[in-house]
Protein backbone atom coordinates (compact mmCIF):
# COMPACT_ATOMS: atom_id res chain seq x y z
CA UNK A 1 0.00 0.00 0.00
CA UNK A 2 2.76 2.35 1.01
CA UNK A 3 4.71 1.29 -2.12
CA UNK A 4 1.79 2.04 -4.44
CA UNK A 5 1.37 5.37 -2.79
CA UNK A 6 5.03 6.20 -3.24
CA UNK A 7 4.91 5.30 -6.95
CA UNK A 8 1.84 7.46 -7.43
CA UNK A 9 3.52 10.31 -5.60
CA UNK A 10 6.60 9.99 -7.81
CA UNK A 11 4.48 9.90 -10.95
CA UNK A 12 2.62 13.03 -9.89
CA UNK A 13 5.91 14.77 -9.08
CA UNK A 14 7.52 13.84 -12.40
CA UNK A 15 4.42 14.78 -14.36
CA UNK A 16 4.35 18.16 -12.67
CA UNK A 17 8.07 18.66 -13.32
CA UNK A 18 7.76 17.78 -17.00
CA UNK A 19 5.45 20.63 -17.51
CA UNK A 20 7.94 23.00 -15.90
CA UNK A 21 9.93 23.81 -19.04
CA UNK A 22 8.41 22.14 -22.06
CA UNK A 23 7.51 18.51 -22.69
CA UNK A 24 10.28 16.10 -21.64
CA UNK A 25 9.00 13.54 -24.13
CA UNK A 26 9.32 15.99 -26.98
CA UNK A 27 12.79 16.98 -25.87
CA UNK A 28 13.85 13.38 -25.65
CA UNK A 29 12.40 12.55 -29.04
CA UNK A 30 14.12 15.56 -30.62
CA UNK A 31 17.43 14.51 -29.09
CA UNK A 32 16.94 10.90 -30.10
CA UNK A 33 16.19 11.99 -33.64
CA UNK A 34 19.34 14.09 -33.69
CA UNK A 35 21.43 11.21 -32.36
CA UNK A 36 19.96 8.66 -34.74
CA UNK A 37 20.46 10.81 -37.83
CA UNK A 38 24.03 9.38 -37.76
CA UNK A 39 23.80 5.97 -39.38
CA UNK A 40 27.53 5.37 -39.42
CA UNK A 41 30.79 7.13 -38.98
CA UNK A 42 34.47 6.59 -38.92
CA UNK A 43 36.64 8.80 -36.81
CA UNK A 44 40.29 9.20 -35.96
CA UNK A 45 40.48 8.81 -32.23
CA UNK A 46 42.90 9.02 -29.36
CA UNK A 47 41.91 6.76 -26.55
CA UNK A 48 43.19 6.65 -23.00
CA UNK A 49 42.13 3.82 -20.74
CA UNK A 50 42.47 4.48 -17.05
CA UNK A 51 41.86 1.40 -14.99
CA UNK A 52 43.69 0.72 -11.75
CA UNK A 53 45.20 -2.57 -12.87
CA UNK A 54 45.72 -1.61 -16.52
CA UNK A 55 48.71 0.26 -17.81
CA UNK A 56 47.92 1.15 -21.36
CA UNK A 57 49.47 4.00 -23.27
CA UNK A 58 47.31 6.36 -25.30
CA UNK A 59 46.00 4.43 -28.28
CA UNK A 60 45.43 6.09 -31.60
CA UNK A 61 43.33 4.50 -34.26
CA UNK A 62 40.24 4.65 -36.35
CA UNK A 63 36.91 4.06 -34.68
CA UNK A 64 34.15 2.68 -36.93
CA UNK A 65 30.53 2.83 -35.91
CA UNK A 66 27.40 1.60 -37.61
CA UNK A 67 23.96 1.92 -36.17
CA UNK A 68 22.60 0.38 -34.11
CA UNK A 69 25.45 -1.37 -32.29
CA UNK A 70 28.42 -2.19 -34.52
CA UNK A 71 31.70 -0.75 -33.38
CA UNK A 72 35.33 -1.48 -34.12
CA UNK A 73 38.59 0.23 -33.27
CA UNK A 74 41.15 -0.26 -35.98
CA UNK A 75 44.80 0.03 -35.06
CA UNK A 76 46.86 -1.16 -38.01
CA UNK A 77 49.14 -3.93 -36.74
CA UNK A 78 48.33 -3.07 -33.16
CA UNK A 79 45.88 -4.29 -30.57
CA UNK A 80 42.61 -2.60 -29.93
CA UNK A 81 41.01 -2.70 -26.52
CA UNK A 82 37.35 -1.88 -26.06
CA UNK A 83 34.96 -2.58 -23.26
CA UNK A 84 32.68 -5.54 -23.89
CA UNK A 85 29.98 -5.03 -26.53
CA UNK A 86 27.16 -4.19 -24.14
CA UNK A 87 29.01 -1.19 -22.79
CA UNK A 88 29.46 0.59 -26.08
CA UNK A 89 31.18 3.84 -26.58
CA UNK A 90 28.45 5.76 -28.37
CA UNK A 91 25.49 7.57 -27.05
CA UNK A 92 23.08 5.72 -29.26
CA UNK A 93 23.91 2.55 -27.44
CA UNK A 94 23.26 3.99 -24.04
CA UNK A 95 19.72 4.98 -24.86
CA UNK A 96 17.27 2.15 -24.48
CA UNK A 97 15.87 0.81 -27.73
CA UNK A 98 12.13 0.48 -28.39
CA UNK A 99 9.37 2.19 -26.46
CA UNK A 100 10.43 4.11 -23.40
CA UNK A 101 8.96 6.02 -20.53
CA UNK A 102 10.53 9.42 -20.15
CA UNK A 103 10.45 11.00 -16.73
CA UNK A 104 11.43 14.59 -16.21
CA UNK A 105 13.77 15.12 -13.25
CA UNK A 106 13.96 18.87 -13.43
CA UNK A 107 17.07 20.99 -13.81
CA UNK A 108 20.56 20.67 -12.47
CA UNK A 109 23.88 22.48 -12.82
CA UNK A 110 26.54 20.61 -14.75
CA UNK A 111 29.99 22.19 -15.20
CA UNK A 112 28.45 25.60 -14.47
CA UNK A 113 25.64 25.18 -16.94
CA UNK A 114 21.96 24.65 -16.31
CA UNK A 115 20.85 21.37 -17.86
CA UNK A 116 17.61 19.42 -18.00
CA UNK A 117 17.69 16.02 -16.29
CA UNK A 118 15.45 13.20 -17.39
CA UNK A 119 15.18 9.49 -16.76
CA UNK A 120 14.39 7.03 -19.49
CA UNK A 121 13.06 3.60 -18.62
CA UNK A 122 12.44 0.97 -21.31
CA UNK A 123 8.87 -0.25 -21.43
CA UNK A 124 9.93 -3.79 -22.16
CA UNK A 125 12.06 -5.79 -19.80
CA UNK A 126 14.10 -7.53 -22.49
CA UNK A 127 17.13 -5.27 -22.98
CA UNK A 128 20.27 -4.97 -20.89
CA UNK A 129 19.57 -1.34 -20.02
CA UNK A 130 17.43 -0.86 -16.95
CA UNK A 131 17.52 2.91 -16.66
CA UNK A 132 19.24 5.82 -18.39
CA UNK A 133 19.53 9.20 -16.78
CA UNK A 134 20.43 12.08 -19.11
CA UNK A 135 21.64 15.61 -18.52
CA UNK A 136 20.57 17.59 -21.59
CA UNK A 137 21.54 21.07 -22.74
CA UNK A 138 18.21 22.24 -24.07
CA UNK A 139 19.68 25.14 -25.96
CA UNK A 140 21.97 23.07 -28.15
CA UNK A 141 19.89 19.91 -27.83
CA UNK A 142 22.86 17.82 -26.73
CA UNK A 143 23.24 15.17 -24.04
CA UNK A 144 26.08 16.33 -21.79
CA UNK A 145 26.08 13.38 -19.44
CA UNK A 146 24.37 10.00 -19.24
CA UNK A 147 24.20 7.49 -16.46
CA UNK A 148 23.08 4.09 -17.64
CA UNK A 149 22.30 1.25 -15.32
CA UNK A 150 22.71 -2.12 -17.01
CA UNK A 151 21.58 -5.52 -15.96
CA UNK A 152 25.00 -7.18 -16.14
CA UNK A 153 27.67 -4.52 -16.23
CA UNK A 154 26.77 -2.15 -13.45
CA UNK A 155 26.49 1.55 -14.08
CA UNK A 156 28.13 3.30 -17.01
CA UNK A 157 28.53 7.06 -16.87
CA UNK A 158 29.39 9.06 -19.97
CA UNK A 159 30.38 12.71 -20.11
CA UNK A 160 30.56 14.50 -23.43
CA UNK A 161 32.03 17.69 -24.81
CA UNK A 162 30.97 18.95 -28.18
CA UNK A 163 32.53 21.22 -30.77
CA UNK A 164 32.68 20.85 -34.55
CA UNK A 165 30.23 17.95 -34.86
CA UNK A 166 27.57 19.19 -32.42
CA UNK A 167 24.96 19.30 -35.17
CA UNK A 168 25.19 15.48 -35.40
CA UNK A 169 25.24 15.13 -31.60
CA UNK A 170 28.74 13.66 -32.04
CA UNK A 171 31.10 14.64 -29.27
CA UNK A 172 34.75 15.69 -29.56
CA UNK A 173 35.58 14.25 -26.20
CA UNK A 174 33.91 11.47 -24.29
CA UNK A 175 34.77 10.15 -20.86
CA UNK A 176 33.21 6.85 -19.93
CA UNK A 177 33.19 5.82 -16.27
CA UNK A 178 32.42 2.22 -15.50
CA UNK A 179 32.49 -0.43 -12.78
CA UNK A 180 35.07 -3.17 -13.19
CA UNK A 181 35.91 -6.38 -11.41
CA UNK A 182 39.28 -6.80 -9.76
CA UNK A 183 42.05 -8.59 -11.63
CA UNK A 184 44.55 -11.03 -10.16
CA UNK A 185 46.88 -13.76 -11.45
CA UNK A 186 48.95 -16.10 -9.25
CA UNK A 187 52.48 -14.77 -8.68
CA UNK A 188 53.86 -18.26 -9.21
CA UNK A 189 52.66 -18.07 -12.80
CA UNK A 190 53.73 -14.54 -13.62
CA UNK A 191 57.07 -14.58 -11.68
CA UNK A 192 56.88 -10.84 -11.22
CA UNK A 193 59.84 -8.57 -10.82
CA UNK A 194 58.53 -6.82 -7.74
CA UNK A 195 61.25 -4.36 -7.05
CA UNK A 196 59.30 -1.24 -7.79
CA UNK A 197 56.91 0.76 -5.67
CA UNK A 198 54.15 -1.79 -6.21
CA UNK A 199 55.81 -3.98 -3.59
CA UNK A 200 53.55 -2.20 -1.15
CA UNK A 201 50.41 -4.20 -0.51
CA UNK A 202 47.39 -2.84 -2.29
CA UNK A 203 44.00 -2.37 -0.80
CA UNK A 204 41.82 -5.31 -1.59
CA UNK A 205 38.78 -4.24 -3.51
CA UNK A 206 36.15 -6.39 -5.06
CA UNK A 207 35.15 -3.84 -7.65
CA UNK A 208 36.99 -0.92 -9.11
CA UNK A 209 36.10 2.16 -11.10
CA UNK A 210 37.64 2.75 -14.45
CA UNK A 211 37.38 5.31 -17.17
CA UNK A 212 38.03 5.59 -20.84
CA UNK A 213 38.71 8.94 -22.43
CA UNK A 214 38.20 9.27 -26.15
CA UNK A 215 39.18 12.25 -28.20
CA UNK A 216 37.63 12.33 -31.64
CA UNK A 217 39.91 14.10 -34.07
CA UNK A 218 38.02 13.83 -37.33
CA UNK A 219 34.69 12.29 -38.26
CA UNK A 220 33.47 10.99 -41.57
CA UNK A 221 29.72 10.70 -41.16
CA UNK A 222 27.13 8.64 -43.04
CA UNK A 223 29.43 7.44 -45.79
CA UNK A 224 27.68 4.08 -45.90
CA UNK A 225 30.07 1.80 -44.07
CA UNK A 226 29.81 -1.80 -45.12
CA UNK A 227 29.34 -4.53 -42.52
CA UNK A 228 32.53 -6.14 -43.75
CA UNK A 229 34.51 -3.44 -41.97
CA UNK A 230 33.37 -4.87 -38.66
CA UNK A 231 34.28 -8.42 -39.53
CA UNK A 232 37.86 -7.66 -40.40
CA UNK A 233 40.58 -8.73 -38.07
CA UNK A 234 43.19 -6.16 -37.28
Amino acid sequence: MIRTFAILLCAVFFCNASFAGGDANQLYEALRKKIFQVKDYQALVEMKIEVNYMRIPQLTGKLYFKSPDKMRLERTGGLSILPKKNINLTLSNLIPSGQVVVMDAGYAMLNGKKVRVMKIVPELDAGDIVLTKMWIDEESLLAMRTETTTRNDGTVIMEMQYAAYAQYALPDRVTIFMDLKDYKLPKGVTLDYNQSADLKPKKKTENQKGNIQIKYLKYEINKGLSDAVFNQKN
Binding site: Y53, M54, R55, G78, L79, Y183, K184, L185, D192
Partner: peptide, 20 residues
Protein backbone atom coordinates in the same frame (compact mmCIF):
# COMPACT_ATOMS: atom_id res chain seq x y z
CA UNK B 1 54.74 -11.07 -37.06
CA UNK B 2 54.87 -7.88 -35.04
CA UNK B 3 52.28 -6.12 -32.92
CA UNK B 4 51.66 -4.55 -29.54
CA UNK B 5 52.69 -6.68 -26.62
CA UNK B 6 50.59 -7.66 -23.66
CA UNK B 7 52.43 -8.28 -20.42
CA UNK B 8 50.44 -9.90 -17.65
CA UNK B 9 51.68 -9.32 -14.15
CA UNK B 10 49.99 -10.82 -11.12
CA UNK B 11 48.17 -7.55 -10.46
CA UNK B 12 48.48 -5.62 -13.68
CA UNK B 13 47.74 -5.77 -17.35
CA UNK B 14 50.30 -3.87 -19.37
CA UNK B 15 50.09 -3.02 -23.02
CA UNK B 16 53.23 -1.88 -24.79
CA UNK B 17 52.98 -0.45 -28.28
CA UNK B 18 54.99 -2.18 -30.96
CA UNK B 19 57.10 0.88 -31.73
CA UNK B 20 58.09 1.03 -28.09
Amino acid sequence: GTGDMINLKSDAFILILKDD
